[in-house]
Design a protein around this nucleic acid. Sequence first.
DNA 1: AGTTTGAAATACAGCTTGTCAAGTGAAAAT
DNA 2: ATTTTCACTTGACAAGCTGTATTTCAAACT
Lengths: 204, 204
Amino acid sequence: MAARKYEQRLRAERSEATRRRILDALEQRLREAPTQPISIEEVAHRAGVARTTIYLVFGSRAGLFDALATELWNRAGLPGLTEAVAHPDAREHLRGGLRAGIQIYAALRDVAVALFSMSALDPESVGGAIARLEERRWGGMQHLARRLGEQDLLRPDVTVEEAADVLWMLASFASFDALYTGRGMSTDEVARVLVTTAERTLCR
Amino acid sequence: MAARKYEQRLRAERSEATRRRILDALEQRLREAPTQPISIEEVAHRAGVARTTIYLVFGSRAGLFDALATELWNRAGLPGLTEAVAHPDAREHLRGGLRAGIQIYAALRDVAVALFSMSALDPESVGGAIARLEERRWGGMQHLARRLGEQDLLRPDVTVEEAADVLWMLASFASFDALYTGRGMSTDEVARVLVTTAERTLCR
DNA sequence: AGTTTGAAATACAGCTTGTCAAGTGAAAAT
DNA sequence: ATTTTCACTTGACAAGCTGTATTTCAAACT
């Protein structure tokens, strides 16, 4: 998106700035009033931009939300998560991965609620961004389950596939939010509950 | 709703029939195309009714969805669930309650996705029906946790409050659907995973 | 100086929701 | 048998939204 090649610095910078202002406006609006329908007009107004500019830059309403989802994830997600995944001990991988994921979910909570719900109602409405992220997450859970199996950390009555399924459920945004928003827990408390649940269910 | 007192049988019956036709049309439409925006016009057309009639009967779009949610729940929920709750053994209460809940979720899956997502985006848009159901569910989880504690079935390091929190998360529609739709499991498999997770995490 | 181009302005068609006024026809009351 | 009642219809309306197309502008580049 907006991936035109420029020799022209200033124009490229201004263009990028406009793009960011729009995404920031959308994010801010989602945080301020997550439970209210959003019009592109409103986002444009907040960004100090014409409505048509948003269509020009992002192609469509769905493209805008898609861009926000992917941008936020990259901004909030990569550092902690990749560090956790790299840990040689699979059990620490499990713990650190869950904690890192929860940090991301908490940082993006209001925005994530909107994006996940929109995607559930109609995956197209967020341009498939959530579906792509969830597919990556599923890959991550399979990887983690495999490593737990390789290091002989799984209970004898739990297969690698079953472990992946349980991790998939527990590491979902919905599980996080059931405890974080639904029960008013802190991120540390949520992490404790989810890690405990995962370990008691899956590990020896 | 539609609570006018009639001496007139026939008119009351026809009125009820209209109401049901509208709700059936909405439910059918949600099952056929869960991921497509729904217009009241469309529901009215399917029900063979004027659009204004829907506003007349249900007051608003939100009132319509509210009515559908409460009606479906009562239709699908009460028998199995109340039976499970009545079991003298709290452990069987846990198992039967989860199984019964899962049966409900599965029967209403497509409709439930829409209703829960709509409620997450804007609780008002379904007239608060989902919020009320979830509050009752929370009461049920607290009750179950208390019974597990009373019958000394909880692990010594698990408090009644913590048990209620975990049950709240595991018995949510989101947890069910992560496995049912997300992983393509059957209801029996979902029940096995959820019951196992709950018991290993909470019970001695 | 002349050209590119990111963005604005304006207008449009088509779809929503919600409300309102007036009308119809069949069941109920007398 | 006639009148009343009422569930429902019809048609119209204001207001808001999305998406697109056309034209214009001014800053940035060559």
